[in-house]
């Protein structure tokens, strides 16, 4: 038996919005520690890792670990029917083939049940080993979203370079080029408006903007975003969800050789 109740139902809706563009079908893993998901996007370029800890739920019960396969578009369809302030409860039997979403309005006047047929998804469990990163940037998530959106109207890829002064995003396209620099800024009072750089050595990496834009869909979940980078390693774009967990995106950098290969064959 699996049961998890979340007062802030909105949160679950936002989580779905943040991953359904990247992943269409995935297994949600339920364990005593929490409710999690690890999946590659369909073209195997990026990886999403979601973790909602059990202690963040109002009520969490999981007798044995379960893996529930769902089509995220269908989950999103059901969650759309929940009000923003509704309390959401997920329920599943250990050997059942459905999961139930129950939505309760704040004042308990309206209770709805949605039952989704589960899928049997054969996929591998993936994870990126934790490492020490050469550079970590924390910046306002809205700022990051805007930068990605603006740059993608100019070019397809972005070069992110981190130095001790700031982080620079630059792109090149048919119509011209663009550079946006965010300076280290710790003076502001509010933590969520700060740009903080933690640097061991300067890093410069290239990424496909298409994916960063998809990652930025998680912006409503957190006021700030943390970018962790090392030479020749995937960037981690992390959104911390207050008191319950995080959503992390991994994206492999574009490597010079690959570019060469693509151009010269």
């Amino acid at each position: 038996m699996f049961e998890a109740r979340l007062t802030q139902g909105r949160l679950l809706k936002q989580v779905l919005e943040a991953i359904k563009d990247l992943v269409t079908d995935a297994n949600f893993d339920c364990a005593a520690t929490g409710f999690s998901l690890q999946a590659m996007d369909s073209s195997h370029v990026s990886l999403v890792s979601l973790m909602l800890r059990s202690d963040g739920f109002d009520h969490f019960r999981c007798d044995r670990s379960l893996s529930m396969g769902m089509n995220l578009n269908n989950v999103a369809k059901m969650l759309k029917c929940a009000g923003n302030d509704d309390i959401i409860t997920m329920k599943a039997e250990d050997s059942g083939d459905t999961v139930t979403f129950m939505f309760e309005s704040q004042n308990q006047e309206r209770i709805s049940d949605f039952e989704l047929k589960l899928m049997d998804i054969d996929s591998e469990q993936l994870g990126i080993p934790d490492t020490e990163y050469a550079a970590t940037v924390r910046m306002p998530s809205g700022e990051f979203q805007r930068i990605c959106k603006d740059l993608s109207s100019i070019g397809d890829t972005v070069i992110i370079s981190v130095t001790k002064d700031g982080v620079k995003f630059s792109t090149n396209g048919d119509i011209g080029s663009a550079n946006i620099t965010c300076r280290q800024n710790t003076a502001v009072d509010k933590q969520e408006e700060q740009t903080v750089i933690d640097l061991n050595e300067p890093v410069q990496l290239t990424f496909a903007l298409r994916y960063l834009n998809s990652f930025a869909k998680a912006t409503p979940l957190s006021t700030s975003v943390i970018l962790s980078m090392s030479k020749e390693l995937p960037v981690v774009v992390e959104y911390r969800i207050a008191e319950i967990g995080h959503i992390k995106y991994y994206l492999a950098p574009k490597i010079e050789d690959e570019e060469m290969e693509e151009n010269d064959g």
Partner: peptide, 24 residues
């Protein structure tokens, strides 16, 4: 409702160069 996402291979590039398969 039964699908297979396929075994990702390292040769395909992308994130698979870095990801570790966790055994299930």
């Amino acid at each position: 409702r039964s699908i297979s996402l396929g075994k990702a291979s390292q040769a395909a590039g992308g994130i698979m160069k870095f990801a570790k398969v966790q055994m299930s």
